[in-house]
């Protein structure tokens, strides 16, 4: 057994946040449990109460339309996202990132909401959601509010959400059909593993709009400051990569951990920026080389 805690399966969103509010910070939302239960077992988390939101039907839905974008309910497992045609077509970088989280078994339980709220610097779905300007829909006794993923991460393992707030869905704004997204990840083995470095990017050749985000290279996943000018599809990649690297260095602070040294992360950064640009601008497929 995993220690001692109580469990309640909430039937409504209100029921869920009311429980969280009542527990005064000693409760945790149980989504897929693939991080939470591991942390409880390891003694890194010791909530008194787990509030399971998977009984709330409305959190189970994933809807997508090119016009309105995607709405991913907080309980939707990652495999559903990986397999969703709309996500795969319109946000391939997100589908790719979701696919690299854990193993098939894990992805049948794990959720995007959990991946984000765990606030690991290495969270694979964070970089693509950052570049896609995704928004969390959050409910609490004070009402509903929207939290952009861009303002979610406060520190390693720490989000800006209050203890009584429940994520109900992740909304991804629509993007033009011309928009490209890509995701690249480096890990120690080719099978399931946490990232040494992960990067995601979004590019629209029609507007020249380019955004990239980097994970596992700072206390939180970070968005690289914008270039401030449109990027044409035939922009010379080496030069562009250099400029982006210079911008990235302002926001990353790689550390050494059990997966890699800071030096290695730093050395990978330009390689990954360049490959990401090749994927976005030239649509070359680096994934096989990466894995």
């Amino acid at each position: 057994m995993l220690g001692e805690f109580e469990y309640v399966r909430a039937k409504t969103i209100k029921g869920g946040y009311s429980l969280l509010a009542k527990a005064g910070g000693e409760a945790a939302v149980l989504a897929g449990g693939t991080d939470l239960l591991v942390n409880i077992r390891a003694g890194k988390a010791s909530p008194r109460l787990l509030v399971d939101m998977k009984g709330v039907k409305s959190l189970d839905r994933l809807t997508f339309s090119p016009k309105t974008g995607a709405l991913i309910g907080a309980s939707v497992p990652l495999n559903t996202i990986v397999e969703n045609r709309g996500i795969r077509t319109r946000y391939p970088g997100l589908a790719e990132a979701a696919w690299t989280v854990g193993s098939y078994q894990i992805r049948n339980r794990a959720t995007i909401a959990g991946n984000l709220c765990n606030a690991s610097p290495a969270a694979d779905t964070a970089p693509p959601l950052l570049v896609l300007d995704a928004i969390l829909e959050v409910a609490s006794p004070r009402g509903e509010r929207e939290v952009p993923v861009r303002s979610l991460f406060v520190d390693s393992k720490k989000t800006s959400l209050s203890f009584d707030e429940v994520v109900t869905a992740i909304r991804i704004p629509p993007v033009p059909a011309t928009t490209r997204t890509a995701f690249l990840k480096r890990q120690r083995v080719k099978g399931h593993d946490l990232a040494i470095l992960n990067v995601a990017g979004r590019y629209d050749p029609a507007t020249g709009d380019l955004q990239i985000a980097i994970g596992s290279c700072a206390k939180t996943p970070v968005l690289v400051p914008p270039l401030g000018e449109p990027v044409p599809p035939d922009a010379p990649i080496p030069e562009l990569a250099r400029r982006l690297e210079a911008l990235a260095i302002q926001v990353v602070h790689p550390i050494s951990d059990l997966r890699a040294t800071a030096e290695y992360r730093r050395a990978l950064l330009p390689v990954f920026i360049r490959r990401l640009l090749e994927a976005l601008l030239q649509q070359s497929d680096h994934r096989e080389a990466i894995r």
Partner: peptide
């Protein structure tokens, strides 16, 4: 006990999951 090895894989409503990271009560 951490979902890394897959030795506890069972099917939950037909889908493979690691049973060490599912609560029994979630199986209700």
């Amino acid at each position: 006990g951490a979902g890394e090895c897959g030795a506890c894989t069972v099917l939950l409503d037909g889908l493979p999951v690691t049973a060490c990271l599912v609560l029994a009560v979630e199986g209700d």
